[in-house]
Nucleic acid binder design. Sequence first.
DNA 1: GACAAACTTATTCAGCTGACCAATTATCCC
DNA 2: GGGATAATTGGTCAGCTGAATAAGTTTGTC
Lengths: 242, 242
Amino acid sequence: MAMRSTTAAAERAPQQRAVDTRARIVQAALAAFADLGFDGATTRDIAERAGVNQGLITYHFAGKLPLWQAAVDEIFATLRAHFAARVPALADADAATRLRLMVRQYVHFAAAHPELHRLMMQEGKHDGPRMQWLVDRHVRPLYQLSTGLIADAQRAGLVPDVPPLHLHYLLIGAVAHLFVVAPECRRLTGRDPLRAAAIEAHADAISAVLFGPAVVPPARRRVAPKKRKTQIATDPRPPRRR
Amino acid sequence: MAMRSTTAAAERAPQQRAVDTRARIVQAALAAFADLGFDGATTRDIAERAGVNQGLITYHFAGKLPLWQAAVDEIFATLRAHFAARVPALADADAATRLRLMVRQYVHFAAAHPELHRLMMQEGKHDGPRMQWLVDRHVRPLYQLSTGLIADAQRAGLVPDVPPLHLHYLLIGAVAHLFVVAPECRRLTGRDPLRAAAIEAHADAISAVLFGPAVVPPARRRVAPKKRKTQIATDPRPPRRR
DNA sequence: GACAAACTTATTCAGCTGACCAATTATCCC
DNA sequence: GGGATAATTGGTCAGCTGAATAAGTTTGTC
């Protein structure tokens, strides 16, 4: 094993190809675990999806469980990066603005990465050591962030005054379900919910339901195809006409 | 192989114990398929959960797929019965009342039978013959009922005027997700979302978000109320509190 | 008691499971 | 270039799981 024996002889930096294969394995594992659950997914299947030899997954990861943990870490890191990159200046904006923006970005993330929610539903069904690890390491921090924002928004009168717990789970389900069962929606309706327009429409629907009709000046919605030129400043979506 | 005799002699009525074991197998299959998906679930496991011999499942059902179909038929029949029993006089009431009532009853059903949504999410992830069968036989009729009600409610100004497709999936996710991942919620928050009070609170949350804050009289509000001068006539949702 | 429905027991056997390892190749550092 | 090490390969392992069925036993009904 690589031991930094005598001098400060630095351990070799990991080679680029190793970084690549690791990443490909993690991505394949993510898809497999999200699809089939921990027990249903097999290391062979994962290796095949990743296009690598099966022995490699034991080489790079100690076993199936560490691989699962790496996959979970990966998708949550992606989620945090998504928000960090797209919800700027969190400290500055008021709660209302932040929540509106985050919800919209959350819709986009859920559409681009349905694995997150598929995986969470696979694991959320049964308690156990994996779920414990998952909740303590990733879910709880996000939950506290989410409910904090919700409480702020409630104080501002932006969202209904119901227990934040319920609003939190309500929101997750409302946002993610369409994309989790996107193939079903496609067969049922003939429309692909992953089209950019459909994603935007879903974000609009969520916003309309959660925050009420997006109006600051009481423009009448719903009656005629009246153009809505006045968009609230805090909602960065482009004005869309129907 | 015991074949049903096709002679002129009348077939015997199925014995009661056979009806019972069939039902127990179907219930066990429902739980297993919802938990593990079609491929992940095993007939051995199902037989064990049902407390019957594994050979019986091949005897009563022709194989794994017919068993799955029986389980799906069962849960959807239960859903229809639930609505039929609890949403009376569908023809009389106006769309608003019906939708309010159905949403609330839907929350109760989702809490009592999370298998439905677990199963739908397992199957909704990938297209294929099973999903096709499922959509054609069960999902599409419900979808048309749901979107019909939504459209009516939109005409009455009860819910935001967004595409019914999005409202439909939004609603399903919002209602069901909390109960699908109930164990996660329990570990995360220490509270059990299956308590009667929690179920009611979730129904309240859904109603508040979807229909606006609860109005005092439970009486029907059929037409757009003109009482509120601060609110435009075309939007009957009461304003959120400031 | 006759006879079929309902159920049990005991197989079958192909294929897959995660883990592990010895041999091989690619890459790095001197 | 060459030695060392990281990265990768192919293969083995021992055991388990899969659905299905054949043959035998109990139970209920006529």
